[in-house]
Amino acid sequence: MAQIQRWWLRYGWQLGLVCVGIYCALVLRQEHSMLITEIYEFFSRPFQVTVSRAEYLQDAKVQELQFRITELENQNSQLQRMLQVEKKRSASEQWAPIIGRSGDAWWQEVLIGKGKSAGITIGSIVEGEGGLVGRVTNTGNSSSQVLLISDSSSQVGVMVSRSRVMGILRGRNQSLGTVEFFVRDADVKAGDIIVTSPVSSLFPQGIPVGRVRSVDINKQPAPEAVVEFIAPLGLLEYVRVSHS
């Protein structure tokens, strides 16, 4: 008995404190208190990695757009498969350097550093970073001549991506081209995207070509649009050649 009493005298207050502690902890637990979580948040805040909101949102936006494009591409290829559209584009593609460009025919033609030995044939499609560049008109053993779409003798069957109105794109020997439409009430406005048309015999369909800069609605017999090419035709160094 005396031993218990001595123990109590020595440790009683500690035991009391512990009991109070347990009681408080129980109350915190029962009341679903956020107190401890809040304290943790307060102390760990300096160590939390912060990304600026704008950056985060921008990243998310870019990602979202990429995902959407992927989704649309998939849908599109599925629909094409359902409609059994033949893919005119061939899989064999290669990059070729531009090895020659004459100053007096700057917007008319370029020479590329690959030819028959690399499998390039007359009529192969030439694309650059951004879109259509032209087509091969003459081939040597290891070089080929490319007629640019900005040449005034070049004619490309094109289509307004938004309204599916078709027309013919002619070069103007500069970084702009002209699209002549076949119908009087062509639905076209500045900013529209121009792609190659599905009825073109020279080019596979759907290659991006340019963006409409202005529309001359009063032109006879049909309206005419001025188009700026997407591919930087004046700055080309490498092109992608795909042969049909």
């Binding site: 512990v18 502690g21 347990i22 902890a25 915190l28 208190s33 401890i36």
Partner: peptide
């Protein structure tokens, strides 16, 4: 006392 403190800490850990 050690048991009591252990219980108390355990409850706090639960809360967290």
């Amino acid at each position: 006392i050690a048991v009591g403190v252990g219980i108390c800490l355990g409850l706090l850990q639960d809360t967290l």
